[in-house]
Write a protein that binds this DNA or RNA. Structure first.
Lengths: 191, 191
DNA sequence: TTGACAACTTACTAACTAGTAAGTAAAATC
DNA sequence: GATTTTACTTACTAGTTAGTAAGTTGTCAA
């Protein structure tokens, strides 16, 4: 038998991509198996249910995010650079065939996805907001950022706007996404 | 035969509600027919395809928005009141069982919805941005609003953030949505 | 060399999907 | 009063969905 190396990881990659492209209700096991060149049942062997598969995607993303923010490449950046790194995640999504944020995609379908998956999405969303809030606070105390309100509120605004902008760019083009990122920077950076 | 008065309108209401609740790929004709107490085929009689149905929902919403903004109740408001009216649309969505914006819902699923529907979403999105941009411009010139960048960019930021915040509130609660609205106000209103 | 195990395939099911064709009954129109 | 139209129902199809059970084969460890 020809072994595809690390099928499990390849399945996760394809599922992540499909979630960002079509949404949870917009893709099927057949989309994955056909791209992988295997049968549907092979996917079920690795991930018994669609919920298991999507949960594994989010869990992996949460691990990845934790590794990133604790790695010196991000940890040691100054607040402005950290914010730019954050925006670059989403710029890369946009550049990659107009993908949207996993969190946004799944929250848009929140009332038609399994319960366990909702919990994972909630966890990821919280973790990202906590980091963004801390970064905004750090930047304001260092005099690099300037904004009204609490870092928590500002973090919620920035995150939700980027999430929304990725979606909006699908209908109105990449410029809209870039506009939102630039406007966010102008609204927070000290001139 | 017992006539349900104005079935067509009731179907549109249910479809609009389902789109905001579950998304295009998250509801079926059966969801509508069961709530209406008719058979599936009755829905197909009024709207042959699911695309026809969803397009009709968006078309009606576009008409409604046009009527609203041209009605003196909104037209004659000052810029700050206009912005508050805009936010109130989404506060009402949130209060109504955590519904999200039609545009956001459909853009999240953009790559798995029919072509004709995409065009309608694009149209609605543009029309709302044009109004918001004009309102922001009007407010800035009147000295009621203060912000960096162009009214177009600021409009894109505000709209995408509200769209994203409705989705985020599903996972993290209504407070997050309110935070984003308040932060937006603080970032634009002259103190 | 044998036996266990991992990673599949084949073959299937039950439920649901959008969509259609033909028939029916009430109501509006001529 | 006859005919057409509106708003359905019944009955169906073809395709897709997630998910399962049982069998197969290559790989690896004892």
């Amino acid at each position: 038998m020809v072994k595809i190396e690390n099928s499990k990881r390849t399945i996760l990659n394809l599922a992540e991509s499909l979630l960002q492209d079509k949404g949870f209700n917009g893709f099927s096991y057949a989309d994955i198996s056909s791209q992988l060149g295997v049968k549907n049942a092979a996917i079920h062997y690795h991930f018994p249910s669609k919920e298991d598969l999507a949960c594994a995607v989010i869990q992996r993303y949460r691990e990845r995010f934790k590794l990133w923010i604790n790695n010196s490449r991000v940890k040691d950046l100054n607040p402005e650079e950290k914010l730019n790194w954050f925006f670059s995640i989403y710029s890369n999504f946009r550049a990659d065939n107009g993908k949207v944020c996993l969190v946004g995609s799944l929250e848009a379908e929140f009332n038609s996805i399994p319960e366990g998956l909702r919990k994972e999405v909630e966890g990821l969303n919280k973790e990202m907001l906590v980091w963004l809030e801390a970064t905004l606070n750090e930047g304001r105390e260092a005099g690099a950022f300037q904004f009204n309100g609490t870092p928590a509120s500002k973090a919620a605004l920035i995150y939700s706007s980027v999430q929304g902008a990725l979606q909006m760019a699908r209908a109105l083009g990449t410029k809209k996404f870039r506009d939102v990122v630039e406007q966010n920077k102008q609204d927070v950076l000290v001139a």
